[in-house]
Structure formats: structure tokens, C-alpha cells
Design a binder for these strands. Structure first.
Length: 293
DNA sequence: AGCTCGACCTGCACGC
DNA sequence: TGCGTGCAGGTCGAGC
């Protein structure tokens, strides 16, 4: 499911249910996700208060009151849902009976002190959770090598040109490389390249150009910001799963201009091209051969 | 060092 | 119906 906009949507959904709350009950139902959960994770989390919930690239970071951080990644198919906990009172004296049963692939269940149940579900099990001490977080192998935060202040044409300089790989592969820019995935790379009018097959190094240096890079940086900002505002994209913690769908998928639009006409006015799908580095690339150069 | 590719895992849509 | 194939929002590590 999740690229940056989906992870940010999940963060915003979890924040009110989690921050300031104590983890009263923690159940790990299946430990073997991409990495095994930390030894005794349930015990180590129980009784902890969550002080903040932030995001770095596609990672969620829950600050705990003991100086540790719960580091979470949703992989391809991870999602959270929030419901009233068992026996939680909706109105004083009236117990909530609408709590749904646990579903297949519900791997972690957290119950907060105020009677909320937060369930992590992940069919493909590419996601994971880790506990890292706050002090060591920035040097953790998963965090240390991450590139620019695309909605942060540093991402602009100049930064992109510098990062891509000398790279012989394609623009598509370079944008997917989390060590350069961190948070983009297959959807938003395709969409950003379309908006910038740049071919996914162009060499990354050519972004700087020779005639009008910086122009392409600036267009690309602006396209990345625009597509991500719009997608966050739309609650992300829901392709095959729900993504919001409420179970509601994001709706940015209705705004895709090339992704999964194979053989449909290019939406750019006057272009007349047809969207094509091609496998690049083992992943589908959607693009318009007429207006992406 | 940079780059490409296979592997990890489940579910679904498709064609025969 | 059942079975095989290909596809899916990610990332790591092996091997050039």
C-alpha cells in the first residue's frame, strides 16, 4: 500500500488515538514479518506512554516515555485500523458491542488506556516493527542512509541536480532510490515524471542538462512536491486495500494521470499521446511517450 | 562504488 | 472447477 502520502495519512489517523496514551495491552500474534519482532516486544511496550508520532520517509516513529522509539514500516500491504477495545464504554454504563473480530493477518494488537484498539494487519508481511533507543535512532542502519525528505525544505532543483549528477541509471530508478530522495514509490515517481514532462528512461545525470541547466531539475522537484502534497490532502491512494485507520479509502487514485492508465489517452491538453506500460528495473512504469522526453 | 536483479510473501484477476 | 501465470503501493543483499 504505502508510499509517503499513505504513510502520512496513517500517521494522522493514529496520532489522536495514540499520542498521550498508555499502551495497556499489547499482543503480538505473529512474530515473523520481514524482520522478526524484537525479543519481548509486547512486554517492552506494555505500560509505555506514547509521547509523539512522527514520520521519516515511509517510516512511522512512535516516541515512548522510556527513551525508546517504536520504528514501524508498512511494507507493501500493511495497514492499521482503530476501533473501540473489548468492553470499552461508549457512553458511561453502555458497553460497545460493535467491536469487530480479529481478521486474518492481524499481527499486532495494541489497546490503549482509554479503550481504543489499534490493530496492525499485513498480509504479505513485508512490514516490520523495531525498538530503537532515541539516542541511536539517527545512526540506525535503516535511518542513516535515507535521502532528502521530499516535502522538507531541502528538496529543490539544485539539490536534485547535485544528487543525480554522474548517475548512469534512469530517472525512474534514481527517484525510487531511497538514499537519494526518501519517500517516493512506484506510483508517485510515475506521476511526478509525467507532470514534469520527463521520460522515465532518461539518464539521471541528464537532469542537470547542458543548455539550460537546472530547468528540468526544477520542474521535477516542483512536480514531486505538488503530487505528494495533493495526495496527502486526498488521504493517499487506495488501490486494492483501505488505507486510512478509519477504514475509509483515500481518493487520490481518481487523480492519477498515468499510473494504471495503460492504453488510455494522455490527459495533457493537445498531446494526443497514449499512455504506455513498460517494465523497468522489474517494476511497471507508466508514461506518455509523446510528452515525456 | 554504482547498478541490476532475485528474493521475501500473500492474494487476486486472468486465461485455458 | 481447478490450475498456472503474472501482477501488486517495498527493500535488502548478492553479484556483476
Amino acid at each position: 500500500m504505502p508510499e509517503l502520502p499513505e504513510v502520512e495519512t496513517v500517521r494522522r489517523g493514529l496520532e489522536p488515538a495514540l499520542v498521550g496514551e498508555t499502551l495497556a495491552l499489547v499482543e503480538v500474534r505473529r512474530p515473523d514479518l520481514r524482520f522478526p519482532f524484537p525479543e519481548n516486544m509486547a512486554t517492552r511496550l506494555t505500560g509505555r506512554r506514547v509521547e509523539a508520532l512522527s514520520r521519516r520517509a515511509k517510516y512511522l516513529l512512535a516516541d515512548l516515555d522510556n527513551g525508546e522509539v517504536l520504528l514501524m514500516h508498512l511494507g507493501m500491504s500493511g495497514s492499521f485500523r482503530i476501533e473501540p477495545a473489548e468492553g470499552a464504554e461508549d457512553v458511561p454504563g453502555i458497553f460497545h458491542h460493535a467491536r469487530s473480530k480479529l481478521a486474518p493477518h492481524d499481527h499486532v494488537v495494541l489497546e490503549t488506556g482509554s479503550g481504543t484498539r489499534i490493530t496492525y494487519n499485513d498480509p504479505r508481511r513485508f512490514g516490520f516493527m523495531l525498538l530503537v533507543s532515541r539516542a541511536e535512532l539517527s545512526e540506525h542502519p535503516l535511518m542513516r542512509g535515507l535521502g532528502l525528505e521530499p516535502l522538507g525544505n531541502e528538496l529543490d532543483g539544485q539539490a536534485l541536480s547535485r544528487l543525480f549528477a554522474g548517475r548512469q541509471t534512469s530517472l525512474k530508478a534514481a527517484l525510487l532510490d531511497q538514499r537519494l530522495v526518501a519517500g517516493l514509490g512506484n506510483i508517485y515517481v510515475c506521476e511526478a515524471l509525467f507532470r514534469a514532462g520527463l521520460s522515465p528512461f532518461r539518464k539521471a545525470a541528464s537532469l542537470a542538462g547542458t543548455v539550460r541547466p537546472g530547468l528540468r531539475a526544477t520542474r521535477l522537484a516542483e512536480s514531486i512536491r505538488a503530487v505528494l502534497t495533493e495526495a496527502v490532502a486526498a488521504g493517499g491512494s487506495s488501490l486494492r486495500d483501505h488505507i486510512q485507520t478509519s477504514g475509509e479509502l483515500g481518493y487520490f487514485q481518481h487523480t492519477f494521470r498515468v499510473y494504471e492508465r495503460t492504453a488510455q489517452p494522455c490527459v495533457k491538453p493537445g498531446c494526443g499521446g497514449t499512455v504506455r506500460r513498460l517494465v523497468q528495473n522489474g517494476r511497471s512504469t507508466f508514461y506518455c511517450p509523446a510528452c515525456q522526453r
